[in-house]
């Protein structure tokens, strides 16, 4: 069943890839976007992200690492072991670590501090491929799925959160590199698109809500579940910047800016995207 689903999705991915590459076969620019929307809807019932979620739940509960401990005591911000609704409040300031963390950095912290892994091991391959699965992607898929439908409620009450938000905003508007691009180049106007791809305006509430609450997502074109850290990494690549480091201060600040802007919207991921 799962293999069949994968095969069907792969076929759709090829068809879609072809469609984006040679859209001249379609009568109108609008219709291609409509087709993508339709197919997204159709897949909503059988999102392969569920495979990652199931693996993530196992990883969470199974003893592992040098200390042979499970992650079930990991405090994601609502107390040790509380997963339900935790993601909707992240990023957050964690007193035990003394800094603001998003989910993906918090997982590194728990794997180091609870399971006894080295920092380097816990950070290794945060983004997987079909050949090499990533524990980060699986854990993130499961934990975020436990916030489905919960309204985003990121708090800036802590001064370090306030600072992360402000810094994240400044990074969002920071123009640089050979093309003078910033996040804001592609994401600060309504109704714009690159080629046929719609660009959410992440500086207004509705756009931030749409763009943030639908990650992580199963990417049909890659056959992989992608996390928010991955999304930032890939947008910086398109921005012609050097590579942003997984879990780096800039990535957490940007995530804080976007997550807070999405407050109030029901969290809706893991989703499925082209």
């Amino acid at each position: 069943m799962i293999t069949m689903l994968r095969a069907a999705l792969a076929a759709t991915a090829v068809a879609l890839g072809g469609m984006l590459a040679s859209p001249a076969t379609y009568a109108q620019a609008g219709s291609a976007a409509d087709e993508i929307e339709k197919y997204r809807q159709a897949l909503q019932d059988g999102n392969p992200a569920e495979l990652w979620e199931a693996r993530g739940e196992d990883l969470w509960k199974k003893p592992g690492g040098p200390k042979n401990a499970s992650l079930e005591r990991c405090d994601l911000g609502r107390g040790p072991g509380v997963v339900k609704g935790a993601y909707a409040e992240l990023p957050k300031f964690f007193a035990d670590a003394g800094r603001v963390m998003d989910l993906e950095t918090r997982l590194v912290w728990c794997r180091v501090n609870l399971q006894g892994m080295t920092e380097a091991d816990a950070r290794r391959s945060p983004f997987g491929s079909p050949e090499r699965k990533s524990d980060n992607e699986a854990l993130t898929a499961w934990i975020t799925s436990e916030s489905k439908g919960v309204a985003m409620a990121v708090s800036l009450d802590h001064p370090k959160m306030r600072e992360a938000y402000d810094v994240g905003r400044a990074i969002f508007f920071f123009r640089g590199g050979p093309h003078d691009f910033a996040c804001s180049t592609c994401h600060s106007e309504d109704g714009k698109r690159i080629r046929l791809q719609d660009l959410p305006n992440l500086t207004v509430k509705s756009g931030a809500q749409r763009g943030y609450t639908t990650w992580p997502a199963y990417r049909v074109s890659q056959g992989e579940l992608r996390t928010f850290q991955w999304r930032l990494n890939d947008c910086f690549r398109q921005q012609r910047f050097p590579e942003i480091e997984f879990g780096s201060p800039a990535s957490i600040a940007l995530t804080t800016f976007l997550a807070y802007n999405a407050n109030g919207a029901p969290f809706a991921a893991p989703a499925i995207k082209r």
């Binding site: 050097p242 590579e243 942003i244 201060p249 800039a250």
Partner: peptide, 20 residues
């Protein structure tokens, strides 16, 4: 502060050096 945070958050890769 944002520029400081960025200076510690990127690594060069391929042709994209930190001077960008």
């Amino acid at each position: 502060k944002a520029i400081d945070a960025m200076k510690t958050s990127f690594k060069e890769k391929g042709q994209a050096k930190l001077d960008r």
